[in-house]
Amino acid sequence: MFRFTHERARLVEIARQRRAEQARLAKLEEQRVEYLDRKLAQAEQRDRLRTFLMTLPPDSISEEASVRSITGRYGTRAPSVEQAVQAFARQQGEIVVPSGAAAANILGLSTQVPVRSVYLTSGRSRSMSFGKQVVELRHAPRWQLALADRPAGVAIRALAWLGPESADTALGTLKRTLSPHDFSELASAAPQLPTWLAQAVGKAAYGRCPSQP
């Protein structure tokens, strides 16, 4: 009886070890697949970037600015879409900034993640292919491009996208999340903004509209 019980316990332990080994191997396989998926995604991103750059006119962007690899702590990588677009903007002499929807997401004023890559530009509107994606450049009025990539400029574009109905609430959030310097810079830009936005910014900054004594 003792021998039978001992043998049964040994078989149970063998089965347990076998299941543990199978789980370990399955985990390793899962990690291997995840690693290969990441590498494949990186390769596809590089291919999309090359395709995007090939769609640009030959004289619109320099070879060095567009395709130069970036060496960092974790090795060499291709430039991102954002970097390629900014290189294009420098070559064209345009102001190019992320759209209001992207700005609102960056600042935490919206949980909506833009599906398309949209940028506002001081130049003409146009679209450029980026593999299966499309990078869309939309001409925007000068006030939406004010302060370019500074936090106050990002706030202006987010507020423009959110519209008058959400401006007061968004400005309350921005007053808490932006640094005093950045919020002061936003308030200083009020004269450049349309009336509805200038009044909302003035109310948030000074407790009154700029036009009020």
Rank of each mutant, 00 (worst) to 15 (best):
V33S: 06
L178H: 04
D182K: 05
E29V: 08
I70N: 04
A200S: 08
P191G: 01
A200V: 00
A84D: 07
R48Q: 13
A148F: 15
T51A: 12
R150S: 12
G75A: 06
A9H: 12
Q17S: 07
P98C: 03
P58E: 11
R16A: 13
L171Q: 05
A187Y: 09
A89F: 07
W196Q: 04
P180Y: 00
S60C: 03
G172K: 04
K39S: 02
Y119C: 00
R10S: 12
V134H: 11
L197R: 01
T177H: 00
L145R: 12
V96T: 05
D59N: 11
F52H: 14
K203R: 13
L28R: 10
Q91M: 11
V154P: 07
R116V: 02
A140W: 05
V97A: 03
H139G: 12
T71H: 06
H139C: 10
T195E: 10
V12P: 03
H6V: 14
G163P: 12
P57I: 01
P191K: 00
G172Q: 08
I70T: 04
A101G: 11
S66N: 07
Q212Y: 10
V115I: 05
E185R: 15
S62W: 06
Q92H: 07
Q199T: 01
T173V: 13
Q133C: 05
I106S: 06
T173G: 00
T195G: 05
E29N: 08
H6W: 13
